[in-house]
Write a protein that binds this DNA or RNA. Sequence first.
RNA 1: GGAGCGAUGGCAGAGCGGACGAAUGCAGCCGCCUUGAAAGCGGCCGGGCCGAAAGGCCCCGGGGGUUCGAAUCCCCCUCGCUCCGCCA
Length: 436
Amino acid sequence: MIDLRRLRSEPEFVLAALGRRGIDLAPVEQVLELDRQQREAARRRDEVRNQVRTISADVGRLFKEGRKDEAGALQAQSRALGEQEKALDAEAEALSERIRTALLVIPNLPHADAPDGASEADNPELRKVNFDPDGYGPHQRVPHWEIGKELGILDLERGAKLSGSMFVMYRGGGAALVRALIQLGLDRNADAFEEIRPPTLVRTETMISTGHLPKFADDAYHVERDDLWAIPTAEVPLTSLARDEVLDEADLPSRFMAYTPCYRREAGSAGRDTRGLLRVHEFDKVEILAYATAAQAPALLVEMVGRAEATIAGLGLAYRVIEICTGDMGQSHHRSFDIEVYAPGVDQWLEVSSISWFSDYQARRANIRYRPTGEDGAPGKGTEILHTLNGSALAVPRVWAAVVETHRRPDGQIAVPEMLRPYLGGRELLSAGPSR
RNA sequence: GGAGCGAUGGCAGAGCGGACGAAUGCAGCCGCCUUGAAAGCGGCCGGGCCGAAAGGCCCCGGGGGUUCGAAUCCCCCUCGCUCCGCCA
């Protein structure tokens, strides 16, 4: 969530920044007013509490000295003050709760350099790589679901039979290709990121930390009986790794990666991109994440985009990098880039990675801090909220689709990109038949 | 799933109704001593909120209750450990 103190001290700045997102600012102004009321109530409560404490100490002393009558009188007085304190506390608490609820749905401030814009249409394209619209032959203009069926590596009918539409099943070489892509995604980042295998069912607090709850509850699978949520991305458990912890500045940046299945109800996108692998309820993804100081974050963001990009390029795919404008940013984002891969069979640009800097927005929700290092190398004073960044290193289904479509040969077989061969036992081709 | 025990500062660990935000030890930091280091000695050493400051308030796993007063008593929850059961 945004910094309430900053909202209080620089309201014009915060309102202007949020205004760039094109959202309704009334709730933000309301928080400002509630905050004024809350502090006043808390101040009055604290005064009364102080009196109660002082009197109670006196009561104890008087009892010890055997002055029971005087003590009894003070007890009565303190009891009355206690009633008052209770009422003031309830008032302050109610206000805090309203503020917290409102704050949870107010989005992050966009970075000053994030481009202005109202929607997806205003996202500037930063670069387009490897793309020649006329360079694709008719053999590549076949959608992956047809290729998958022809080669027996993708079985959409049976996926739907088991779990319903938008659940998919890979088989044979297709399943091996999934595993190969996961392994590739991990290996390419293992030089700098510690691998984590987190739980994929998490508690409500864990979903709140990243901003996936309360606002987007309809998009997530919820296991009612145990009150657990199926993670929509490894970002969720990775961000909460350090929840309620205080790290040392010397340990930053701290980097983690995880392969996990990801679960999404896609409630808001019914009927869109429903064919094949374009949008599915369960998919595999390798995620990379960093905890950092504010100063370290910009360079990390560039590095993480570069990592995701290099993997896509290494697979011989055409792609473009776009920056997300203020009107299209996710709630928690401070600055964000997408990588879209071109899939010739469906003739579409598919989002395969979104790399974002969250400033301290998530870390404030998750209460992740660090102890700054002083100039002399000794631990500095106090603690600061750190910054989080994360992005997909490799999202399997769409990359799978682009690989299969891009590398389909005129004879219908798939030429395995060189980078992937070690992960497929050295195989150079995926074909139909027993060796598939 | 059943039974029992536990949760206190970076760690270990006292406290079990009234100067307790919390003894003590270890770790850390700063001085003294030393050619340097160790040892020794002295000092410092949790976090959050409000406030210009002085200062005030909150936090002993979480929530509720009893009391003039709760780390301490009661209730609920969560987590951990041990034993039994079950199990890939």
